[in-house]
Design a protein around this nucleic acid. Structure first.
Length: 343
DNA sequence: ACACAGATTGCCT
DNA sequence: GGCAATCTGTGTC
């Protein structure tokens, strides 16, 4: 029998669920069924924790051999990763950043995954390269990956691997991974063990020349002249924004957005009118059909209504939202989406 | 704007 | 060994 730990953390401190009298660990393998659920109260802070107890159900000799092999491999790896240890060890700096002094602070990130995904919309992602180049873009599309029961998440069932480790780090930590062998995707960890927000699209604001150059590097040279990308095509996808912003695993993974000088998020000070929550389109996530209909269809993707930099627009949901807005008077002072750029 | 095929390699089983 | 939180180029409407 093995125990998998999926601790959740309270809002206001670094406390996490303590597993009493049980040697709990999370590790590489989770090819098992699970049972869950215990809530605990500690130090006057409400803490929601769950222990997944997993058992191997193999019976034949062949299956036993497979199991023994997996155990052997695990022992050989001698790498026992623990969600609590990862979380605590990611709080190692009190360092004050030199750049981006008006960046968003810890409290902005330390919220449930869906709140962070929506909260990031309209904010500005800033990248500062080692040569001083500064790139900026409005965040216009995000997706939630919840961990736990979320089959599409790299941290499904509390699975911890060397790759998914940053998902367990403190809210505001970057998780950059390589997909399809050649592209990068950029996530930000949120509150909740293993939960993170994928940034899917940006509307470029500053450094467009650099972005054009970065995107051009990937293009194959064909006989016909390569056509210039439009501004709204530079960052209209999770891997595209990583290319344009030079976000790679080797450069940007496991970084603290509240402290690192290379990357941060800030409020859009030029936008005096606040983003109206009514103008956030909620739709299903992209590229996860293989996990099954239940989780592929969950409304965990959020984007700014009518924005042309969004990677995949859900016209049906947009139409519904427009109808709602038309019949509401509360949105008349809002910035979005009356601006012609958003039509 | 949309649909489809092919690319390419790290990660997980 | 097989898959993948995607992109590009080409073709069609």
């Amino acid at each position: 029998m093995e125990l998998y730990c999926q601790s959740h953390f309270c809002n206001c401190c670094l406390s996490s669920t303590k597993m009493q009298n049980v040697n709990v660990r999370s590790d590489y393998f989770s090819n098992t069924a699970s049972a869950s659920g215990s809530n605990t109260k500690m130090n006057n802070h409400q803490i929601c924790g769950s222990v997944h107890i997993t058992e191997n159900v193999m019976s034949s000799d062949e299956q036993s051999q497979t199991y023994n092999k997996s155990v052997h491999k695990r022992v050989k790896l001698s790498k026992v990763l623990n969600a609590d240890d990862i979380f605590f060890s990611s709080h190692n700096s009190n360092r004050t950043p030199t750049y981006g002094l008006n960046r968003l602070k810890d409290s902005f990130y330390d919220v449930p995954c869906e709140d962070l995904a929506k909260g990031l919309l309209g904010k500005i992602l800033v990248r500062r390269l080692s040569d001083g180049t500064v790139l900026k873009g409005h965040i216009v599309e995000t997706e939630c990956y919840l961990g736990g029961d979320d089959k599409a998440s790299h941290s499904y069932k509390g699975r911890i691997t060397e790759r998914s480790k940053p998902m367990y780090m403190k809210p505001g930590t970057t998780y950059v991974y390589i997909t399809y062998g050649m592209y990068h995707c950029f996530n930000i960890s949120s509150q909740g063990s293993g939960a993170a927000v994928l940034l899917r699209a940006l509307e470029p604001l500053e450094g467009l020349e650099f972005m054009h150059l970065e995107r051009g590097k990937r293009k194959k040279s064909t006989s016909s002249k390569p056509k210039e990308l439009k501004a709204h095509e530079l960052c209209s996808g999770p891997a595209k924004l990583c290319m344009s912003f030079n976000i790679t695993k080797s450069l940007c993974n496991e970084q603290d957005l509240t402290a690192w000088d290379g990357l941060w998020v800030e409020e859009d000070e030029s936008n005096q009118k606040s983003l109206d929550p009514c103008h956030i389109v909620t739709s299903h996530r992209i590229g996860i059909d293989s996990v099954g209909r239940e989780w592929a269809s969950k409304p965990l993707r959020f984007y700014l209504l009518g924005n042309s930099s969004v990677s995949r627009r859900d016209r049906a949901r947009e139409k519904e939202l427009w109808e709602t807005i038309k019949h509401s008077s509360s949105t008349k002072d809002s910035f979005f989406p009356q601006d012609p750029a958003y039509e």
